[in-house]
């Protein structure tokens, strides 16, 4: 079930995958662990960049660049602006009660265990070989056709959702007028 990796004769792709995974997990953990919000955001940017690397490794080029543009370009900039707006860089977070930390760690271990057990024991477990249909399935050409034919309605709803989110964000962050 769980194969021990053969480090001595790993291929280049396996080495790249291992390095990317280590970077992803380490920066994700540092995002949680670091005390300064600005450092958290920078670590999260590195984490997202390495996930883009994973997408490139899976040969999903469009996804990789959309991930770069949307997550690093838009979401993280928004978060950085919010952090700077609130001026939270010298944070004095109160000490958490021990039961909270203990509960978080226990839940982390249990969830890892349960989710891995579920995924590993589920039916379509790979038996070493993977099919290669040879057809092009992840170029922008195919994705665009699929998105605008089969998934037309969800696509439109996504645009409506973004519009509503934009209006909501503007409304929420507008300063309320003082009542006279």
């Amino acid at each position: 079930m769980i194969t021990i990796p053969d480090i001595a004769n790993a291929t280049a792709i396996q080495i790249i995958f291992s390095v990317l995974s280590i970077v992803t997990l380490a920066t994700a953990f540092l995002t949680i662990y670091s005390k300064k919000p600005m450092h958290n955001a920078i670590y999260l940017v590195i984490c997202f960049a390495s996930i883009s690397g994973h997408y490139l490794l899976l040969n999903a080029q469009f996804l990789a660049f959309v991930n770069l543009i949307v997550y690093i370009g838009a979401i993280m900039i928004l978060m950085l602006f919010t952090i700077m707006l609130m001026n939270l860089n010298n944070e004095d977070e109160v000490h958490k009660p021990r039961i909270t930390r203990l509960g978080a760690i226990v839940l982390f271990c249990l969830m890892c265990l349960v989710l891995i057990a579920i995924f590993m024991n589920s039916k379509p477990i790979a038996d070493g070989s993977y099919e290669v249909t040879g057809e092009d399935y992840q170029s922008i050409n195919v994705l665009g056709k699929l998105l605008l034919n089969e998934y037309m309605v969800p696509f439109e709803f996504a645009s409506v959702l973004l519009l509503v989110a934009m209006i909501g964000a503007v409304l929420l962050s507008k300063k309320e007028k003082l009542e006279k």
């Binding site: 838009a74 928004l78 973004l162 509503v164 964000a169």
Partner: peptide
């Protein structure tokens, strides 16, 4: 990703 972008925009507001 679209839902995440919308969620972050509203949540940060």
């Amino acid at each position: 990703m679209a839902v995440a972008a919308a969620e972050v925009a509203v949540g940060l507001a």
